[in-house]
Computed example of a mutant assay.
Amino acid sequence: MAATADHVRALVRAHARDDDQGFYSVALQVAAKAARQGHTRFAADLRELIDAAQSRPTARRTGPIPVVKPKGELAELVTAEYPEIRLRDMTLADGVRARLERVIREQRQRERLEGFGFAPMHRLLLVGPPGTGKSMTAAVLAKELGLPLFTIRLDGLISRFMGETSAKLRVIFDATVQTRAVYLFDEFDALGGERGAGNDVGEARRILNTFLLFLDETSPESLVVAATNHPDLLDRALFRRFDMVVAYDRPNAEQAVRVLRGRLAVMDTSGVDWEQLHDHVDGLSHAELVRAAETAAKNAILSDSESVTNTDLISALDERRLAHA
């Protein structure tokens, strides 16, 4: 068979993402492999089909029309986007995936729950090392629920005149009632730090107390997602105010290989010994694995090859590990 299992998976992923260029790139790889195996007729037919499809004018696919845009003072406090990443695109521990699926299910059946007097989970705290998918999770929730993602700009929120910060928090939490969206407080420890810290000046306590009050009053119409790399810096009172705390960790060896395979799906990886990579992925985050895969892929492309070598991939992984050793 000309197409390997990796090729088939890559074709399906590209189709699901409406990635025409990626789809045709993988199809050409299948044709090239067929030609090398002696299936010249099939390879020629496939190339003709690809050429015909690429030359045919197609209606431009458009993403969702942004019917919701932050206005007024809110526009200065958040950035808005309509993410495209789905939950199926993330490599996650089974426990984390199950918890996120629960949030999505409750939000999709929000009205049914509210009919019985229950509110869906809508206040989430995501904790874990950098690059493990916390911010991406907020984007996934927005996509799965068909909502915009509003990321809070902490540089605009935290004023040197601390009294202004509480007023700006009011603007954001008022918006959660008026505009249904996913509101992401990234690097949340900058706002939710321990109230007993030595440099606390009293006003910081009032800001955190204000945040806790607003959080308690948040409407289940929207999701408030706080993410931090440093949960040890957070005030203890915060943890019990969230409906769910989701802990992320760096991927284990099997998960790491899935991340690498996914990013390299458009390349020929038949020469990669995936089991051998287990000794070279320890301690790397999802983001670092993706960057290592991209480095190895670009090395192959710049060498006029479609094949990622075992040596290049191991070298890229080891370089990432040394960077934070």
Rank of each mutant, 00 (worst) to 15 (best):
223 L>R: 00
195 R>Y: 01
227 A>V: 06
248 Y>T: 05
238 L>E: 00
250 R>C: 14
235 D>W: 10
172 I>D: 05
203 E>L: 14
206 R>S: 12
195 R>W: 02
186 D>A: 13
237 A>C: 07
217 E>C: 12
202 G>C: 11
193 G>S: 13
235 D>P: 06
186 D>M: 13
245 V>N: 02
184 L>V: 13
188 F>N: 05
243 D>C: 01
200 D>W: 06
183 Y>R: 07
221 E>V: 14
202 G>I: 11
203 E>R: 10
217 E>K: 14
244 M>R: 07
183 Y>D: 06
226 A>C: 11
229 N>G: 04
228 T>G: 00
202 G>D: 08
183 Y>L: 10
234 L>S: 02
200 D>C: 07
205 R>S: 13
183 Y>E: 06
177 V>A: 03
188 F>W: 10
228 T>S: 09
185 F>S: 03
185 F>T: 06
206 R>C: 10
220 P>S: 14
180 R>T: 14
251 P>Q: 03
246 V>S: 01
230 H>Q: 06
237 A>Q: 09
201 V>T: 14
226 A>Y: 01
224 V>M: 01
224 V>L: 02
248 Y>D: 01
197 A>S: 15
181 A>L: 01
200 D>M: 11
247 A>P: 02
192 G>M: 13
183 Y>N: 09
199 N>V: 14
215 L>F: 10
242 F>R: 06
230 H>C: 01
183 Y>H: 09
241 R>M: 05
239 F>T: 13
216 D>W: 07
198 G>C: 02
173 F>E: 06
173 F>D: 05
224 V>K: 03
176 T>D: 05
207 I>Y: 02
230 H>Y: 05
231 P>K: 04
183 Y>K: 07
247 A>S: 12
202 G>F: 09
251 P>I: 10
177 V>E: 08
194 E>G: 03
218 T>H: 09
216 D>A: 12
201 V>L: 15
248 Y>N: 01
204 A>W: 05
230 H>D: 00
179 T>C: 08
229 N>K: 02
223 L>N: 00
225 V>Q: 01
178 Q>K: 15
